[in-house]
Simulated assay, not measured.
Amino acid sequence: MPLPVIAGLPWLAAVIGAAFGAIFSWLVKFFTKRVAVTLAIVALVVSATAAFVALITGLVSSLEYVLPPWFSLAVQLVVPENTTACFSVIITARLARWAYEWNVRIIQYKLF
Results as ranks from 00 to 15, higher is better:
1 M>S: 13
1 M>T: 04
1 M>F: 09
2 P>K: 11
2 P>F: 04
3 L>T: 06
3 L>V: 10
5 V>M: 15
5 V>D: 09
5 V>P: 03
6 I>T: 06
6 I>C: 07
7 A>W: 04
8 G>N: 15
8 G>Q: 15
10 P>Y: 03
13 A>T: 06
14 A>Y: 04
16 I>T: 02
16 I>F: 01
17 G>S: 06
17 G>D: 11
18 A>M: 02
18 A>F: 03
19 A>S: 06
20 F>A: 14
20 F>I: 06
21 G>A: 06
23 I>E: 00
23 I>P: 00
24 F>Q: 05
25 S>D: 06
26 W>F: 10
28 V>M: 07
29 K>Y: 10
30 F>I: 06
31 F>A: 10
32 T>H: 13
32 T>N: 15
33 K>F: 01
33 K>L: 07
35 V>G: 02
35 V>L: 14
36 A>M: 05
36 A>L: 05
37 V>A: 15
37 V>C: 06
38 T>R: 10
38 T>M: 03
38 T>H: 06
38 T>N: 04
39 L>P: 00
40 A>W: 06
41 I>K: 11
41 I>Q: 08
43 A>T: 08
44 L>M: 09
45 V>Y: 01
47 S>N: 09
48 A>I: 08
52 F>S: 01
52 F>H: 08
53 V>C: 04
55 L>Y: 11
55 L>M: 07
57 T>C: 03
57 T>A: 14
58 G>Q: 02
59 L>S: 13
61 S>W: 03
63 L>P: 05
65 Y>F: 09
65 Y>A: 12
65 Y>T: 10
68 P>Y: 07
69 P>E: 02
69 P>W: 00
70 W>P: 06
70 W>V: 05
70 W>E: 15
73 L>D: 13
73 L>C: 11
73 L>I: 14
74 A>N: 07
75 V>N: 08
76 Q>N: 12
76 Q>A: 14
79 V>T: 07
79 V>S: 08
79 V>Q: 04
80 P>C: 07
83 T>L: 15
84 T>K: 02
84 T>G: 03
84 T>Y: 00
84 T>H: 00
85 A>W: 13
86 C>E: 15
86 C>M: 15
86 C>W: 13
86 C>N: 13
87 F>E: 01
88 S>A: 15
88 S>P: 00
90 I>Q: 10
90 I>H: 01
91 I>T: 11
92 T>C: 09
93 A>C: 12
94 R>Y: 03
95 L>K: 02
95 L>E: 02
97 R>D: 09
98 W>Y: 12
98 W>K: 01
100 Y>S: 14
101 E>N: 11
101 E>I: 12
102 W>G: 01
103 N>S: 15
104 V>Q: 12
105 R>T: 14
106 I>L: 14
106 I>Y: 09
108 Q>D: 02
109 Y>P: 01
110 K>W: 12
111 L>G: 10
